[in-house]
Design a protein around this nucleic acid. Sequence first.
DNA 1: TGACTCATGTCAGCATTCTGACATACCGTG
DNA 2: CACGGTATGTCAGAATGCTGACATGAGTCA
Lengths: 152, 152
Amino acid sequence: MSQKGAGVDLDKSLGYLLKEASSALRVAMEEVLRPLGMSVTHYSCLELLAQRPGLSNSELARGAFVTRQSMNVLLQTLERDGYVTRPAAAPVGKALPTRLTPRGRRSLEKATVAVRSVEVRMLSGMTGAEQSRAFGILQGMIDSLRADEGGA
Amino acid sequence: MSQKGAGVDLDKSLGYLLKEASSALRVAMEEVLRPLGMSVTHYSCLELLAQRPGLSNSELARGAFVTRQSMNVLLQTLERDGYVTRPAAAPVGKALPTRLTPRGRRSLEKATVAVRSVEVRMLSGMTGAEQSRAFGILQGMIDSLRADEGGA
DNA sequence: TGACTCATGTCAGCATTCTGACATACCGTG
DNA sequence: CACGGTATGTCAGAATGCTGACATGAGTCA
């Protein structure tokens, strides 16, 4: 148990372990994205747009787990730098469907390779069956946490 | 991105799911800590000190997954408000061992109850065996992610 | 002993994200 | 049609965390 020099002998709870795993993933992603001049949220936004073109600012925010205000700031930068485009006026309602530009797509391609290598490293040493179990376990945690949260 | 899942509607990668789970946990914790006027980092710091009294600022920072600069700001606030104490001079080296005050301990007790309820909710629906598997899986991910990161 | 390396605490500046607030646009019900 | 409820985009201010930098103390090694 007590291996880390800095550390904590405390018997870790699953909550702490989840936070630690997420932190390790974030650090690893930042490390490979930094040379590309891209942050994790930056990459998440582009990846979401590649998979589901036309997402609105609010939808992107929910997908990247930030507020729509934060995503709006990011989108303004991405639009200014030519990675995404948004129509000047909303075709319906107030939502502005966002799309990747060719430049955004090219930028994303490099980032995807880098991020995929991190995920491969994270899953190294796990069998396919373990990955499936991990999927089910994490999804179950999410569902339980959000169970009475919205309705409370 | 779709991989060989066990039949799940897997548009999500395990990395994304990990981020989603961590986000859900953070949101749930913030929700129950807000009435106590406490942030997640705030609580983490107190909890670490309860389990390992005398941790230094840098050690607390690593345990809470923030920089030592950020933890320093928090510690100054906690010290000013009487939740923790630090000696004016370092007994050895530069590290200042931090300890909870009785007030800090009382504040932590309420928070611990609240946070534990969140963790219980997160683990509801999981068997003991599944929790053990989750523990092993998350620890494995952390180890793999940090494998060549620190050494490279 | 002196030089080097490493860890720590701390200050300053910057970046990112959040909370609060407002106006607008759709949709349901009456 | 009018009304409330919900969702969206956006602006402004504040909180939080991070990077860069510096000085100090301890350990290592020649």
